[in-house]
């Protein structure tokens, strides 16, 4: 068997030789680190594996998802399992959406200096700075649309010089937009009512009693909308 090419990565300052071609996450696991927090779907959807790194000979700090980014020779890495960003506590049923609602819950957004560091930090390539600007003037639709693909990794908040928690602001905006502003979807309301009334309880109970093999079989046989 041919020898696999090896690269050197630095985890929190210590050098490790790992095979080339792995993601940052797999490379760190190869080096012996075990993920307890800071790892979820391994598919770039859950936003759990925020990572900060620098490349040898480059002054810039880069931000990415560990499960989506290839490890490169000479990477200096640190994982960010959690971001202790400010999060407003609210009861959505008691919120009256106004132009100032987002500022009221997250007043620090008016401290934005438009440096755009958040946008540069976003692994999803979102226009983070512009959705914060929209949040400032209470444009819920714009915030919801610009932040739609946010996976809540928190890297924007870590890099912000104004201590803004962009992803929490955007989540509140999307919730308000969904509840109060966006067009209601009839089928969804109907389905939610059915669930509340217990129409699907029997079927769900049946699923919960199945073993893995039975579940797999049922999954493969499931009906998919739009197919025969």
């Amino acid at each position: 068997m041919a020898e696999t090419e090896k690269i050197t990565i630095y985890a929190m300052g210590k050098a490790y030789k790992v095979p080339a071609g792995l993601t940052i996450m797999s490379a760190l696991e190869y080096a012996g680190y075990q993920y307890i927090r800071g790892c979820g779907c391994r598919s770039g959807y859950c936003g759990g594996c925020a990572t900060i790194y620098r490349r040898e000979g480059d002054y810039k700090l880069y931000t990415d998802l560990a499960c989506q980014t290839p490890a490169e020779d000479g990477m200096y890495l640190v994982q960010l399992p959690f971001v202790p960003a400010n999060k407003s506590i609210y009861d959505l049923d008691k919120i009256e959406p106004m132009e100032t609602t987002l500022v009221e819950h997250y007043p620090e957004i008016v401290k934005c200096v438009s440096c755009n560091t958040c946008t540069k930090a976003c692994p999803q390539d979102l226009d983070v700075m512009y959705f914060i600007q929209a949040a400032k003037i209470g444009d819920f639709k714009e915030v919801a649309e610009l932040s739609f693909d946010c996976i809540q990794c928190g890297l924007c908040a870590v890099r912000c010089p104004a201590d803004i928690a962009h992803y929490h602001v955007a989540q509140l905006a999307r919730r308000i937009y969904g509840k109060f502003i966006n067009e209601k979807v009839e089928q969804l309301t109907k389905r939610l009512n059915e669930i509340e009334k217990g129409v699907y309880d029997k079927e769900l109970n049946k699923l919960m009693k199945m073993n893995k093999a039975m579940l797999e079989k049922a999954y493969k046989k499931r009906k998919i909308e739009g197919t025969k």
């Binding site: 106004m98 100032t100 500022v103 009221e104 007043p107 620090e108 008016v110 401290k111 400032k136 003037i137």
Partner: peptide, 25 residues
């Protein structure tokens, strides 16, 4: 900034909030 009341946020224009935060924080 956490001491500004809800009613005040509802009334104060952005221009006042941004300016005061620039000068006081």
């Amino acid at each position: 900034i956490n001491k500004i009341k809800k009613e005040e946020y509802a009334e104060l224009p952005q221009i006042a909030l941004v300016a005061s935060m620039r000068k006081y924080t």
